[in-house]
């Protein structure tokens, strides 16, 4: 019965449908094209380059395809492995500190009261984030200057002898770690603050009725809400530290010796000093793979949906 009465509309429907079928594509096209232009195309280009002998300063050699030769060379390159290991050490040095400080600051800001103070602090947290990496490096050079740097002045106040930060391998590593922590702790704090504000008030209060320990509250009630943010921070930072260049370069150029020679500094050297684009692309692709693997690991280890 009903189908009989709506007989005419189905004849018009193909017109509507053809319009409707393409509409979503049209809406998506700009985003997809942009993504292709700024993300996929360069990546594909890097993949292709990584399969070639591609040195910009040896144009007369041409750019022949060499298969996986670049990858094999990179994997066999002990400098690459060393710098990667150093980068990993850097990651495990700065991340726990940034996370711990970030959570502490976030908890302090999450407490009720001090409305004006909190607003001021929240804004000032953005300052390190908004500072260019290279400028952070320059600031670092000043802070850790042996003779007139702030770091040694602090040390002197506490009765410790000044340290030759940038001239000492461990000191230099510590110095770049400190600057990284300075720059990124606020980011962690803001992410965690957002996570804390996701905890429904009454859930937090219910927990406060069951335990007096802020630590237990953090561990059992707030932490689950922090995990998505934590995952994001870990992923972002693993990608970011793998390409951390400007700050370290302006501060130490990877020295003294190889103390702060992170993998990004090495890749930059291969790519833009030696101009061996093939090898540099292979290194970059390997790091991309590493980033993806790490991201999957972080997601499966930490990411839990809460609703």
């Amino acid at each position: 019965m009903a189908s009989l009465t709506i007989d005419p509309p189905p004849r018009r429907r193909p017109v509507c449908l053809s319009h409707g079928r393409w509409t979503p594509f049209l809406f998506l096209a700009p985003a997809v094209l942009t993504l292709f232009a700024i993300g996929i195309y360069p990546t594909l280009f890097a993949v292709v380059t990584s399969l070639r002998h591609y040195n910009l300063t040896r144009t007369h050699d041409g750019f022949p395809f060499v298969g996986l030769h670049n990858y094999i060379a990179v994997l066999a390159d002990h400098t690459f492995r060393e710098t990667l290991a150093r980068t990993a050490l850097f990651y495990v040095t700065v991340m726990p500190v940034e996370l711990a400080l970030g959570v502490t600051i976030a908890l302090a800001l999450h407490r009720p009261g001090w409305t004006l103070m909190r607003a001021v602090v929240r804004v000032s947290l953005v300052v390190p984030l908004a500072t260019t990496y290279a400028v952070v490096g320059l600031i670092g050079r000043l802070i850790f200057n042996r003779d007139f740097g702030v770091a040694n002045q602090f040390a002197n106040w506490f009765g410790m002898p000044g340290l030759d930060w940038l001239g000492d391998p461990r000191g230099a590593f510590a110095a770049i770690a400190v600057m990284d922590i300075w720059q990124w702790t606020p980011f962690c704090a803001l992410i965690f603050l957002a996570g804390l504000s996701m905890v429904p008030n009454e859930v937090e209060e219910a927990a406060r009725l069951e335990t007096s320990s802020p630590l237990a509250l953090l561990r059992h009630v707030q932490l689950p809400f922090l995990l998505p943010g934590l995952t994001a921070v870990l992923i972002l930072r693993s990608a970011d530290i793998l390409k951390l260049f400007d700050m370290v370069f302006t501060m130490t150029r990877g020295g003294p010796g190889a103390a702060t020679d992170l993998v990004s500094i090495y890749i930059q050297r291969v790519g833009f000093r030696v101009f061996d684009m093939g090898t540099a692309s292979a290194q970059a692709i390997l790091l991309l793979v590493l980033t993806i693997v790490l991201s999957r690991l972080f997601i499966s280890a930490f990411y839990r949906e809460i609703d």
């Binding site: 300063t57 040896r58 391998p169 020295g255 003294p256 010796g257 000093r273 101009f275 061996d276």
Partner: peptide, 22 residues
């Protein structure tokens, strides 16, 4: 020669390692 750009990096790394006594 063109190879200096790679060699200078090696010299820089081990030259400073020498000075540090590494």
């Amino acid at each position: 020669f063109p190879a200096w750009s790679s060699i200078t990096e090696v010299v820089a790394e081990f030259g400073s390692k020498m000075m540090l006594g590494e």
